[in-house]
Design a protein around this nucleic acid. Sequence first.
RNA 1: CGAGGUGUAGCGCAGUUGGCUAGCGCGCCUGCUUUGGGAGCAGGAUGUCGGGGGUUCAAGUCCCUUCACCUCGACCA
Length: 478
Amino acid sequence: MAEKDKRVEAITAMDKDFAQWYTDVVLKAELIDHSAVKGCMILRPYGFAIWENIQKNLDALFKATGHENVAMPMFIPEGLLQKEKDHVEGFAPEVAWVTHGGSEPLAERLCIRPTSETLFCDHYAHIIQSHRDLPKLYNQWVSVVRWEKTTRPFLRSTEFYWQEGHTAHASKEEAMAETLRMLDVYADFYRDYLAIPVIKGQKTEKEKFAGAVSTYTVEAMMHDGKALQSATSHYFGDGFAKAFGIQFTDRNNTLQYVHQTSWGLSTRSIGAIIMTHGDDEGLVLPPRIAPIQVVIVPIAAHKPGVLDRAHAVQAELKPSLRVRLDESDKMPGWKFAEYEMKGVPLRLEMGPRDLENNQCVAVRRDTGEKRILSLDNLATSVMAMLDEIHENLLEKARISRDSRTYEASDYETFKDLIANQPGFVKAMWCGDEACEKKIKEDTTATSRCIPFEQTHVSDHCVCCGQPAEKMVIWGKAY
RNA sequence: CGAGGUGUAGCGCAGUUGGCUAGCGCGCCUGCUUUGGGAGCAGGAUGUCGGGGGUUCAAGUCCCUUCACCUCGACCA
């Protein structure tokens, strides 16, 4: 029991204090450390390795859809940021400024990019002349800075890593198709790599991106019932093109403005992983992005043959899996707890008893299930188990989300649900921003999205009672 | 940005009305013994008491200021 007590001490229970649980996990699983600057986190090797795996896999999906990576500067001259009115109004309150070069004041101050639309637009204006130059399908993997008042690791940090795709097209139809295509890429990525089910939908006018015609989102539900905007894709129409003069000559030799999109997914996705799959033992990582997919823990490693066999197994798995053999002199129980805290999907225990039987003991992180595996064709059975874990995580998350998704057709029910039942509430909305604002004032819930997959809850706006056709998902959000 | 809370060794904490060389547990280092759920014994190392300024014979302790972290709001693509 003493061992158990030590573990409980290590991480605050989710039910007791979810916020503290989250903080404990990000620090104790060694994902991040705090830096000297407020809200700026240090991504430690284990945390960064998760990000690298996200990058690697998502980038492959971008490449498969014809996108190219570029690198823009981190500075935006003030004049450039101000070219699109809505955009600058949206971002000005949270940009950081560089005012000096060495000891000399700059003639024009430079903002540290909060997002790079203006840089891409400026560049596009230079390089796009003909319809033959289109489409431009660019992406970059960088960090951006937004001077947020309240910060939390991964969820809202002052500086954060992300990718931002910026595309320019000859027609609005093509740009809209790109916007929705990339939203699909995000949704598929969340499902297939992070084992997180998301809801695709459109943001309301109030919630859309500064400067966009329309914003689309994938929304996920965290373990505490709160919503996390997990990635967004924006359709810009030709608004930025007109502000920045991005024109091309079409097939009929007439001058046209391009139609643009942008879309992004950030290190916030790691927050989503933590708060979707984690439990009281710590992190639970989906196998496809886990830095360590399999950890081999030798038992009684000093006994003849144990370590040799463990090394052989590691060598066998290494070509197809991210595998670690922990041959440190820590106690096995210590290692079990440690790798559970770090969310390693599968643990293989190998002791003298196993060697006699040409087997090992496989323990799943998600269910705790122990299974005896033959050392013959081990890579195959391990990979099958990792796939099972992925499917189970996805299914568990889906059930968890659906069981906390409610419907409300009248305002009293709505308010009661938001106040007392953490989760999503589906309710009809008339389309008036006033109702959205009132709901936020009354309940602190916001419209998460107008889901593509509509269900008919009632005929009337849940807030004002006017006829309503759109079903909106509401919830408290990070 | 508003309200509240917290900063003492890597982590968790104690430190009395201001008073001696700032402590405890875990961890860490060395050695031996151990190894199927966070090992045991012996020895050892580790501190700008978050930073700066002030009061005082004397400050971890009191005052001012500043930075960071946490909670709840406001803000938030």
